[in-house]
Design a protein around this nucleic acid. Structure first.
Lengths: 126, 126
DNA sequence: CCTATATATGAATAATTATTCATATATAGA
DNA sequence: TCTATATATGAATAATTATTCATATATAGG
């Protein structure tokens, strides 16, 4: 996001009516912000792989790091992000912290995304 | 993504069996990459607002710029991104280029995201 | 209490990316 | 053909972010 400087097609829009009609149906800035934040979580390969893994089973930080062949620090940072966005929850058992998914909304989202991606794959083949 | 330097919890994972089991069910790197690329589209507020607007009606570049109070250049760049990822399609009519959504998968994705975001909102209120 | 290990986290860095600016291309109308 | 306008796009810039490195915290076991 950057500084704002409006420059609107020679100061007049072409289809005034339609634009006004659309404007009325738009989400609030807050909703859009939350939505973009939510989707951003799924835009990172590491986070996607973490979520995907947790879809199968609860795992500790160490397990995830090992599974993804990544550093413990990196995984911890990403888990923090996921935690802060209420997508995963920790369960402490001694030194070990186990993470699991907060709800199964996540599976729905991933599946829908995958569905779309697969369609694109098929179209490329034709 | 950065250079890779593995560091795996003192070189041994804690729950070897579970990790192996999870590993078998993981998506390919390609699929994960495509998935992250797909979700990344929805992680930007401007793109979300463009998609949301096109959900209501087909619009030309100029209309979108006006609607979002953003520069024509900025919108064109984002439309290019959306076009390249097959989320919108252009229709040229003289000088004017009208954009519309490629399919209605997009509505499903947005709705699902919104559903999740709204739930979070409600939880905060309690 | 001391050591080893699991996890968390702040700061720095490298990479990515959204917007701006300048400019190019395309088309309609005079 | 000349001009005005709609759109596209390359390069530069500013902001964001994923990972690393160093280190802190917490806990189990001796």
């Amino acid at each position: 996001m950057r500084r704002l400087k409006i420059e609107v097609c020679e100061d007049q829009l072409i289809h005034r009516d339609v634009v006004h009609q659309v404007k009325d149906k738009m989400l609030s800035y807050d909703a859009i912000f939350d939505l973009s934040t939510f989707f951003q979580v799924f835009s990172d390969e590491t986070r996607l792989r973490i979520l995907e893994a947790l879809l199968v089973s609860e795992l500790c930080v160490c397990d995830i790091a090992s599974l993804l062949s990544m550093s413990q620090s990196s995984i911890s940072h990403q888990l923090r992000t996921l935690r802060e966005l209420s997508l995963v929850k920790p369960r402490k058992e001694g030194k070990v912290v186990y993470y699991s998914l907060m709800d199964d909304h996540i599976k729905k989202i991933l599946d829908l995304g995958l569905e779309h991606v697969m369609e694109d794959e098929n179209e490329k083949e034709r």
